[in-house]
């Protein structure tokens, strides 16, 4: 039985090494924004408390096995030892305390995540921006209602600015997850939702769908690029100047099941914003949306497919 104990201790310390050694590869343990950081603190706090419980269990476990597992050792054998009220109350109450210690920060964090993240210390408070996200089979579509541009499978955000992602789904449910910036939220066809995220610095953060949505699901990966304010503004201008406009028929093609590479469009049909707004009005518990009323007049006659990079190698196999 000693061997068993050694093995357990060995593997635990290995895991610890692993944890401290290469956290930068472990996205969730490498938070790059205030949302992910709040969740990270909660995770670490829960690891500490539960590791304490595990340690207690393990110590008692090893102790009883070593002490009472030896052959021919009858010392202390007591077949009728059937209970001990004091002990039993102790190991009921300690978990109760631990639950309280976990519940309080959990609830606090839940309410904190409802709104935009607090500005990072030492930096000025910036106006939040809004991006509408639609998951389709099997790609991510991002619309910037204020600037009137659309991207696919990548999204650019200004650093250190709260971003409100309004989440929609065109077909199946998916889940919008950028682990380094914060936890996920589903996209649902009948229920728009929102997710606040914010990046501390300039960077490239990988996101993917976390909810299975069919054959092309594994390819539902996207990048979140965080840029300085100046670069962000310049990027928007470049998209407007150099990319084609999105027409309704191109958009409908885009919704058809396929995996595609990244794309960008200088504009998109106004109906899409109306559709998003309508969906959100239905959701009573969402607060009023900040979609501008005077929408840019979009040049929707431009039917150039040049910006589309529909790769035909959609997921192999299947019916």
């Amino acid at each position: 039985m000693k061997k068993f104990a050694m093995k357990l201790i060995g593997s635990c310390s290995l895991l610890l090494l692993f944890l401290t050694g290469c956290t930068n590869r472990i996205a969730v343990l490498n938070p790059q924004g205030p949302v992910a950081r709040q969740q990270y603190h909660l995770i670490i706090w829960s690891v500490i408390l539960t590791a304490f419980i595990f340690a207690v269990v393990l110590i008692i476990f090893i102790y009883v096995l070593v002490k009472f597992g030896r052959k021919n050792n009858h010392a202390g054998y007591d077949p009728n030892n059937h209970g001990n009220t004091k002990l039993e109350i102790t190991w009921t109450l300690i978990p109760v305390v631990i639950c309280i210690l976990l519940a309080v920060p959990t609830i606090k964090t839940l309410f904190a995540l409802e709104g935009p993240p607090k500005p990072t210390e030492g930096l000025s408070k910036k106006e939040p921006i809004t991006i509408n996200v639609t998951s389709a089979d099997w790609k991510w579509i991002f619309r910037y209602p204020k600037d009137g541009i659309q991207t696919v499978n990548y999204v650019v955000i200004p650093e250190d600015t709260p971003v409100k992602f309004n989440l929609f789904a065109d077909s199946a449910m998916n889940s919008f997850w950028v682990p380094e910036l914060g936890g996920q939220q589903y996209t649902m066809p009948d229920m728009p939702m929102k997710l606040w995220l914010q990046a501390d610095h300039v960077g490239d953060y990988l996101g993917r769908s976390a909810n299975f949505s069919g054959r092309g699901f594994a390819g539902m990966q996207f990048h979140v690029l965080s840029k300085t304010d100046a670069d962000y503004k310049a990027w928007i201008q470049t998209i407007k100047d150099t990319k084609p406009a999105l027409t309704m028929s191109t958009y409908e093609d885009l919704l058809k099941p396929s995996n595609v590479k990244t794309m960008a469009f200088s504009s998109y049909p106004k109906e899409l914003d109306d559709k998003d707004k309508k969906a959100m009005k239905k959701m009573k518990h969402m607060e009023h949306m900040d979609i501008p009323e005077n929408h840019l007049d979009l040049n929707s006659k431009d039917n150039d497919m040049g910006g589309m990079d529909m790769s035909n190698d959609s997921m192999k196999g299947g019916k």
């Binding site: 709040q38 969740q39 909660l42 995770i43 590791a51 939220q185």
Partner: peptide
């Protein structure tokens, strides 16, 4: 017990946003 304590970790909803699925 390992499964149990990770279950507790999952029960913290804001943390679950990072573990879910």
């Amino acid at each position: 017990t390992i499964g149990g304590i990770t279950g507790v970790m999952l029960s913290l909803a804001p943390a679950d946003y990072q573990y879910h699925n």
